[in-house]
Amino acid sequence: MNMPIQANLPENLLMKAQQLVQAGWVSNLDDLLADALRRYLESHSEELAEKFIREDVQWGLYGKH
């Protein structure tokens, strides 16, 4: 289910996004914003942060450094 949102965006950012849509890189602005938000959430996720912490533990205790 999609939910409508209202957001204030910097004008130049919105223009660049619209240019990408017009050039056919993405089908519409809704998809572009959803994709951008998805990528942001993926790269800042708690699961990922915890994965990195576990890697640090292995490296710290058993790594060659």
Binding site: D56, G60, H65
Partner: peptide, 15 residues
């Protein structure tokens, strides 16, 4: 190669 605070903390035992 990237590590964080916990990595440095635990590395301290080995060193």
């Amino acid at each position: 190669q990237v590590r964080g605070t916990l990595g440095i903390l635990l590395r301290a035992i080995q060193h």
